[in-house]
Amino acid sequence: REWTEQETLLLLEALEMYKDDWNKVSEHVGSRTQDECILHFLR
């Protein structure tokens, strides 16, 4: 499923705060797994 604008904003926000702590990043996004966050980030 597609990422919403809100999810993408949360991802970018989390990356600024937590860098590459993907566990914390995915918790911050809330609706995505670590793997989904990493894959989206790599696009």
Rank of each mutant, 00 (worst) to 15 (best):
E16A: 10
E2K: 15
L42V: 14
T8G: 13
E2C: 03
Y18I: 08
E5F: 05
H28D: 00
E36H: 07
L39R: 12
E5K: 12
F41L: 03
L9Q: 14
D21N: 05
W22F: 04
L11K: 02
M17E: 12
L42I: 15
L42K: 15
V29C: 02
A14C: 01
K19V: 06
E36C: 05
D21L: 00
Q6V: 08
Q6A: 12
Q6T: 07
E2D: 15
L39E: 14
F41A: 13
S26Q: 03
L11A: 05
T4I: 11
E7Q: 12
Y18Q: 03
L9T: 14
Q6E: 03
E2T: 15
Y18P: 02
W3Y: 05
D21T: 05
E5L: 04
W22C: 01
I38A: 13
L15M: 15
T33C: 09
L9K: 14
E5H: 08
R32H: 04
L39S: 12
D35P: 12
D20Q: 14
W3H: 09
W3L: 08
R1Y: 11
L10Q: 10
H28W: 08
Y18S: 06
E5A: 07
L15H: 15
H28T: 06
N23C: 12
K19Q: 08
T8H: 14
Y18T: 04
L11R: 02
F41P: 15
L42T: 15
E7F: 00
I38S: 14
D21R: 07
L10D: 07
T4M: 13
T4L: 06
S26E: 12
I38C: 13
N23I: 08
S26A: 14
E27G: 09
E13R: 07
L9Y: 10
K19D: 08
L9F: 08
Y18K: 03
W22T: 04
D35N: 14
M17H: 05
F41M: 11
R32M: 07
K19I: 06
L15G: 09
E13N: 04
D20V: 03
E2N: 14
E7P: 01
E7K: 00
H40E: 15
D21G: 05
R32Y: 04
S26P: 04
E7L: 01
W22R: 01
F41E: 15
S31V: 07
T8K: 12
L12W: 08
E7M: 01
L42R: 15
W22M: 04
H40W: 08
S26W: 03
H28R: 06
C37L: 00
E5V: 07
M17P: 03
T33P: 08
V25P: 01
E13S: 06
Q6I: 09
L9C: 13
H28L: 04
H40T: 06
E27I: 06
R1T: 14
T33Q: 09
Q6R: 10
H40R: 12
E16Y: 02
Y18E: 07
T8Q: 14
F41T: 11
E16V: 03
I38V: 10
T4S: 11
L10W: 05
C37F: 05
R1V: 14
T33I: 01
F41S: 14
A14D: 01
V29F: 02
E13C: 02
A14R: 01
V25S: 03
N23S: 12
L9W: 08
H28K: 06
E5M: 09
G30Q: 02
V29D: 01
N23T: 11
E27N: 09
L15Q: 14
Q34W: 02
D20C: 08
T8L: 10
E7W: 00
L42Q: 15
R32S: 00
L12R: 14
T8A: 12
E36R: 00
E16K: 09
G30P: 07
V25R: 05
R32F: 04
E5I: 07
G30R: 07
H40I: 04
D35K: 11
T33Y: 06
K24P: 03
D20R: 14
E7G: 01
L15K: 15
L10T: 07
S31N: 11
Q6W: 09
K19C: 05
Q6N: 11
D35Q: 15
V29M: 12
V29R: 00
S26F: 01
L15I: 13
G30A: 09
R32E: 03
K24I: 05
G30V: 10
K19H: 06
Q34F: 09
N23H: 10
S26Y: 06
E7T: 01
D21V: 03
E36F: 03
R32N: 00
V25Q: 00
N23A: 13
V29P: 00
H28F: 04
A14H: 00
H28C: 04
E36T: 02
D20M: 05
L42W: 11
W22H: 06
E36P: 01
K19M: 05
Q6D: 08
T33M: 05
F41G: 15
L11H: 03
T4W: 02
T33A: 11
L11W: 02
A14S: 07
L39N: 10
K24D: 04
S31F: 04
C37M: 00
D21E: 08
N23M: 11
F41D: 15
L9M: 13
Q6M: 13
E13Y: 02
S31G: 11
T33G: 10
D20I: 01
E5S: 03
D21K: 09
D35Y: 03
T33E: 06
E5N: 05
L39G: 13
L12C: 05
S26K: 13
I38W: 06
I38G: 15
H28M: 05
L11P: 00
R1C: 14
M17W: 08
N23K: 11
K24R: 12
R32Q: 05
H40L: 04
K19L: 03
H28G: 05
F41R: 15
E16F: 04
L11E: 02
Q34A: 06
W3A: 02
